[in-house]
Write a protein that binds this DNA or RNA. Structure first.
Length: 271
DNA sequence: ATCGCCTCCTGCGCGC
DNA sequence: TGCGCGCAGGAGGCGA
């Protein structure tokens, strides 16, 4: 489920209820995620204070006194804050009891997510140290996309979804940003000009910013709610709209597969 | 270095 | 109602 806006919405939602409080106890029911949850995670975090909740790409970084909890939500993961007596749901793999009498639950039906323990600088961890720039940072630009794409034949949609190029562009927003930019998803990366990459970079930034803003509208309900952000209500121009009329020109939206992922575009608006 | 394919897993909606 | 199938918003790892 999580695209970057949902991860950021989750971060904003849990941060005020975690930072400054300590983890009283941890209960782990299922350790078999993408990588196993370390056998000694409980003893590393129990009794420790949470300092901050940051994000790098789609990874969440919970700073604990003597290390970091590195969390990824995969395709189907979610974190939610509940009252301690709230019943466990199917696939609630981890429960953290907090000193403010709230409980954090990690739920992940498909178990593509992860929860790892990192000592030292988490940004130096092997999963994070080679990631591309944050799309909402100044390091991300059309110039960056242009430079990195030289000599690369891979489809531009796969290229912008490569976290080593830029983090946080998931399957939905890749299609949406390419539509906004008038670029065909299957175009070879190296064949796109610098001006078009500048447009694309701006639209990637735009679509993610808007989606995060929408996620923020449901933040007040985060505690005790289902934790679902509102960004999904956002109007999608092409994603999931196979054979439906283009919002700009009414031409039927095309559906293709690129890199084994569903891809949508308007054959008239995108060249 | 780059590319394309495979994989991990459960749940859901669809057609029969 | 049940079953089999295809598909799902991620991304690391592999062989070529």
């Amino acid at each position: 489920m999580p695209e970057l806006p949902e991860v950021e919405t989750t971060r904003k939602g849990i941060e005020p209820h975690l930072a400054g409080y300590s983890i009283v106890s941890a209960n782990i029911r299922e350790r078999r995620l993408r990588w196993p949850i370390p056998h000694d995670l409980e003893k590393r975090i129990e009794g420790q204070a949470v300092v901050s909740v940051r994000r790098r790409g789609k990874y969440l970084l919970l700073a604990i006194a003597n290390g970091h909890l590195l969390v990824h939500l995969g395709m189907s993961g979610s974190l939610r804050l509940v009252k301690p007596d709230e019943a466990l749901l199917k696939h609630d793999h981890v429960t953290l009891h907090l000193s403010n009498d709230l409980t954090l639950r990690f739920n992940d039906p498909r178990r593509f997510g992860c929860m790892l323990w990192v000592e030292g600088d988490p940004l130096q961890h092997e999963l994070l140290c080679n990631l591309g720039p944050e799309p909402l940072s100044e390091k991300f630009s059309g110039e960056h996309l242009y430079q990195r794409s030289r000599g690369r034949k891979t489809a531009v949609k796969n290229f912008i979804m490569d976290s080593h190029i830029v983090v946080g562009v998931g399957n939905i927003y890749a299609s949406e940003a390419l539509f906004m930019s008038g670029i065909r998803p299957g175009t070879a990366s190296q064949r796109i000009s610098k001006p078009r990459y500048e447009i694309l970079a701006g639209n990637i930034r735009q679509v993610l910013t808007d989606a995060i803003a929408m996620g923020g509208t449901t933040l007040r309900d985060f505690v005790g709610g289902d934790g679902k952000p509102g960004y999904f209500q956002q109007t999608l121009n092409v994603y999931g709209r196979k054979n439906e009329p283009c919002t700009a020109c009414r031409t039927a939206i095309k559906h293709i597969v690129l890199g084994q992922r569903s891809t949508y575009y308007c054959p008239v608006c995108q060249k």
